[in-house]
Amino acid sequence: MAESELAALRERARGGDVDASDELVQLAAELGDLKELRRLADTGSSDAVEQLVQLAAERGELAELRRLSDGGSATAAEQLAELAAE
Rank of each mutant, 00 (worst) to 15 (best):
Q54P: 02
S73M: 11
R38G: 00
E58W: 06
K35H: 08
A63S: 11
R59W: 06
A81V: 11
E3C: 02
A13E: 06
G15T: 15
S46R: 06
A20L: 09
A8W: 03
G44M: 08
Q26F: 14
R59L: 09
S4P: 02
R14K: 13
R38T: 03
E64S: 10
G44S: 08
R14P: 01
M1Y: 09
L83E: 06
L83I: 09
A85E: 14
L9T: 05
A7D: 04
M1L: 11
E11N: 07
G44E: 09
D33K: 01
L52M: 11
A29Y: 11
A8T: 07
E50L: 14
S21A: 15
G60F: 10
V25P: 00
E64G: 04
L65C: 09
Q79H: 10
V53L: 06
R10I: 07
L34S: 04
A7R: 13
A57C: 08
R10E: 07
D70C: 01
E86Y: 05
R14H: 12
V49T: 02
T75N: 07
L65R: 03
A13R: 07
G44L: 06
D33T: 03
L83Y: 08
E78L: 13
T75R: 10
E11Q: 14
R66G: 01
Q79R: 15
Q26M: 15
E30G: 04
E50S: 14
L37Y: 01
Q51T: 14
R14T: 13
A2I: 14
E78R: 08
E36H: 00
G16R: 12
L37C: 00
L55N: 00
T75A: 13
S46P: 00
Q51R: 15
D22M: 07
L65T: 10
G72R: 03
S45H: 03
A85M: 14
L9E: 06
E36M: 01
L68A: 04
R66D: 09
E5F: 07
V53W: 01
E5N: 02
G32S: 01
L37W: 00
S46V: 10
D19Q: 14
D17E: 09
R39C: 04
R10S: 03
Q51N: 15
Q79T: 14
K35E: 11
G60A: 11
A13H: 08
L83R: 06
K35M: 08
R67D: 08
E36A: 06
L37I: 04
